[in-house]
């Protein structure tokens, strides 16, 4: 329980930065909070408002957000055995399958403990994430020029903090390099937002490299 709470506090701080950046990108405070409560998957939310803030259209922002949310589907399958049996409860629990709840549930070997870790983390993260977003959105409304405060530099820093732990996986470094370089090279040639989508080609060399390691 204490671990779930401390994760929640960390997520709350992360939620504050999301709220600030969402209103700086032009969302209303209510929209920022709705995203956190309903979409409830941090990296996708940052990607979405990041592309909007950089001048990309909604369509261009949609795809990277959805691609980043794909992993929740894989998490949900891996948590299948500990999610509630009854259909309506299962449907509710699915909304709370994210990085943090998956990690906390997977850390427990006993199914009953895994279930309570999932529940405690879900409640804690949801409450802190949405309330952090609200706080950030309200504070963010009073902020003048986002650039003079360096808010545009917050997005890359946030994504770097999210990427770093994933780079230890086999194939991940080559995937990051290919995806990152491909996107930057394409910036002058295709509409804003699309280079991010194009970076998905980096998955191919990443999977190939990962296969070589595991083979």
């Amino acid at each position: 329980m204490t671990r779930a709470t401390s994760i929640g506090v960390g997520v709350g701080v992360y939620g504050i930065s999301f709220g600030v950046l969402a209103v700086a990108a032009g969302l209303s405070a209510a929209q920022a909070c709705a995203m956190s409560a309903l979409m409830f998957t941090g990296a996708s939310q940052f990607a979405f408002v990041g592309v909007i803030a950089a001048g990309g259209g909604v369509g261009a922002a949609f795809t990277p957000a959805v691609m980043l949310a794909l992993r929740n589907g894989a998490y949900a399958l891996s948590l299948n055995s500990i999610l509630p049996r009854r259909l309506h409860r299962r449907a509710v629990a699915a909304q709370f399958v994210i990085d943090e709840t998956t990690a906390m549930a997977r850390a427990e070997d006993d199914p009953a403990l895994a279930r309570s870790a999932f529940l405690a983390t879900a409640i804690s993260v949801w409450v802190f994430w949405t309330s952090g977003t609200l706080l950030g959105a309200l504070v963010g409304h009073g902020i003048g020029d986002p650039r003079s405060l360096g808010l545009d530099a917050m997005f890359p820093a946030a994504f770097l903090a999210l990427l770093a732990p994933q780079l230890r996986r086999p194939g991940a470094p080559v995937g990051a390099i290919v995806g990152g370089v491909a996107a930057v090279v394409l910036v002058p040639f295709i509409p804003t937002g699309l280079p991010i989508i194009a970076s998905i080609v980096g998955v191919i060399p990443a999977v190939v490299a990962a296969r070589k390691v595991t083979a």
Binding site: F159, R169, A176, A210
Partner: peptide
Amino acid sequence: LVAVPLLAA
């Protein structure tokens, strides 16, 4: 691995 190139980009 899908998140990795996207985040790098």
